[in-house]
Each structure stands twice: as structure tokens, then as C-alpha cells.
Design a protein around this nucleic acid. Sequence first.
DNA 1: TGTACATCAGTGAACGCGCGTTCACTGATGTAC
DNA 2: TGTACATCAGTGAACGCGCGTTCACTGATGTAC
Lengths: 222, 222
Amino acid sequence: MYPFLDSENGCLLNGMSHTTGIRQAQKLKTRQALLDAALELLEHQSLSSLGLREVTRAVGVTPTAFYRHFDGTAALGVALVEETLGSLHGMIGAILADTGDSEERLDRSVDLITRHVTEQPAHFRFIAREQHGGVGQVRAAIAAQLRGFALEVAQVLGAEPESAGWDREDLLMLGGLYVDHMVLTASALLEAGPEGEQEVVRVARRRLRLVTLGRAHWLDRP
Amino acid sequence: MYPFLDSENGCLLNGMSHTTGIRQAQKLKTRQALLDAALELLEHQSLSSLGLREVTRAVGVTPTAFYRHFDGTAALGVALVEETLGSLHGMIGAILADTGDSEERLDRSVDLITRHVTEQPAHFRFIAREQHGGVGQVRAAIAAQLRGFALEVAQVLGAEPESAGWDREDLLMLGGLYVDHMVLTASALLEAGPEGEQEVVRVARRRLRLVTLGRAHWLDRP
DNA sequence: TGTACATCAGTGAACGCGCGTTCACTGATGTAC
DNA sequence: TGTACATCAGTGAACGCGCGTTCACTGATGTAC
């Protein structure tokens, strides 16, 4: 009845996908409320110090209800990774499919990241914080997603004429560089706040420019 | 009597620098034991979830003793930042003062980082983890230290003939890029473990090569 | 459509536990004379 | 050198508190006939 939800929520729902609307809808609403509350709480702490009771208190349900949705806070963290980065896969295309000369396109990339970070700061902060954080499962989930992004970028770049003669490994290296740069920029924007935004954007552009120059001369190497 | 210690331990000791050896030595020994124990515990969790009692238990002193040295775990974290990054300022010079062609020097940089990370993994893990972690004071302390490194690198690079015509801001951008790359490489090495080391090193070298190429053509831009 | 039974998301009480912080203390070390 | 007092790093008991997890439960929703 809600087949699109099954794919979003993974195996948790596979066994119960036969249930009818009202109950499932209510459950998903609570689940989403837990995710939202957790994300907000995580702006000022790390996942490894986030309490299950904190989250349920913020939502307004009993602590026990938490277990109907997640095994523990680590599992909730993994779900947050999916929610945050799953929705971004479209963005990659939007940035890179752009035509125009490289300077213009570069500025647009940085602007797009800036806009996304400004619009949903909590999501980006979560990723930056937990990418190297204390919960292994979450680190692994983030790494897997970012590897996916790097691959996407590599594929898009590989299709461009500028990449003639590049091998697969070099393209992946370049894709990873762009992705890491994106995450670093997002984190720097969050740390700098509104007043420091301009400066961060300036530096991010310069860095991208340098990388683009390196790319242009990659095959000139001795 | 131990004037060199005053500078290392900051204002905490300023009021008591007149005390004689045995007592002060014992206190510093305990303090160091707390730092060491904390660093070990932080391999598997974040600072924001590190308990004061965990640390004192690991050292073998009462929880109350902790307050003789630090206000709380956040203050201990800041001290750990100083300990970890303070000792690395020499390394920058060692890497960059190297002569030889850029390919050779680049490999030596990566090797040096790899060796340092392998020798004291806990220190690097701590920095990578807390750079974007949940404790503001520690994030700030790390950011200040890394800014210092970027500045050092920028100064060294600025003195080289390849940097003729570069302005201060571009040099800082480049210095920051190298420093961020170093931290990312360290973190990747830790995550990959011994068996993945080779691959991480290969990618790190390629990235550095790309940046170096970009540097070489920086002034060719239209 | 109506009824009788099954499911299950969320409840609320209870548990044992480790936490951070306080306080008055002890006894080795330091200082003054 | 010896003595009498001061300092202060570390002690140990105590506190109130919130934690994660268990359990039997309730009542709205779903299913079968």
C-alpha cells in the first residue's frame, strides 16, 4: 500500500508491509519525530553521548517506545545517515551537469553547497561530526555513502572531454577530493557562522580553482 | 625550578611555581597519567561521552583527585590538544625543509605522516575525532592549532622560488589545503588499518601531486 | 455490515547502576626560624 | 640540623539524579468470517 516507504525504511518494515494505513502512518510519524528530535539534539553533542531518554523526552513519548523503532542510538544514527545523505544524491548531478566555463561552474558549486548548508545546517553538522566520531557503525555508514558520492562524481567527470586519457583510479581520486572538499567546506561554513560565511566561500573557491588547475595539467606530468 | 613546565602547563601552575620538586613532580605524574588514560579511552568513544570517573578509575585515583588537575573533561580535552599538536610543530619543518625534486619530497611527506600516525595512533585519532566533535572548547583549540600549522606551511612555501608572485592569501589557502590533507590522510590511515595502508598512501600521494600541479600553474590563470 | 479475535505502538512502574560534585579529612611534603 | 606550623594532592563517604532496559499492560487498529 505504501511500497515507496519500504525502500526508504529498509528491512525493518519488510515483515509488516501488509499492515494497513493508519497504524503504519502513525508509527512512521513517531519514527520521524524521533529522527528530527535526535538531529536537533546532536547540534550540541556527539551521537556517542546522546541519550535514548533525551530523544523520547523531546518527542513526548515514553522511553520504551524508542525500542519499537530502533535497537539503540547507534541504529538511529545509521538511519540519520541514510536520511541525510540519501537525499543528496541528486545534488551531485545538479552541480556537475552544469555547462559553462569552469570558473562559472565552480562558483555555482560553492554557492549550491552554501545554500544547502544554510537551509539544513543540522544535517550537515551531523555528517561532519560523526564522519570521524565515536560510533563505528555510523562511521561505516557515512564512509559508504561518501564513497558512493565519490564514484558518482568520478563517473560524471569521466564523461567530460577534459578527462580524456584519465584512468579509473585517477578519476576516483579526483572524485574523492571533490567530495572531501565539499564536506570540509560545509563544516567550515557551520563553524564560521553567518558573519564568516563570505571568507569561507572565498577560500573554498580558491581551493577548487587550484584543484581544477591541477586537473587540467594532470597529464602533462613527466 | 622547573620553569619550562610553566609554559607547558599554562596558568594552572603560575600560582604554585614556587613549590619544590617532589610534590610538583608527583602532581605532574598524576596529571600525565590522567591524560594518557583519557587518550586511550578516547580511541573508542568521543570526548563528550568520556566520564571523569572512567579516567580516574583507569589511573587508579579517586574521582575527586581529578579536580586537582582539570575543571572537567572539556578542560582535559583542551590539554590533550596542546599535548598532541604542540609536539608536532617541528614536524612541519622536517617535511617541508627537505630539498630534492617535488616528487621525491612529496613521497617523503606522506611517509613521514604515515610513520607518525603508526607510532602514535591515539593522538591522531583524537584530533580527527574532535576536530568536528561535540565539545566547543576543544574544537576551538584544535582549530587554533591547525591555523598555526597552516600559517607555518604558508611561510615555508612562501620562501620558495616556486611561490614568486603569490600573495599572502593564496599562500594561506595552500597551507590550509596541505594541513587539511594531512589530517584527512591520518584519519584515513587509522580507519583503513595496516592492511589498507598501502592504498591510502597511494591515493594520498596522487592528491598531493594534483595539488602540486595546481600550484605550479596557479599564476597561469586567465 | 457486524462481530469476535489478533496485532502491536505506545504506556507506566520498577530495577540496579554509574554518574558528577560536595565535603571534611589525612598525611606526606614544604617553609620558616 | 631540628622543630613547629602551613600547604595541598589525594582520600572516602555521601548525595541526588538520570540513565538503559525489563515487564506486564492497554486500547486503538487490523483481520477473518
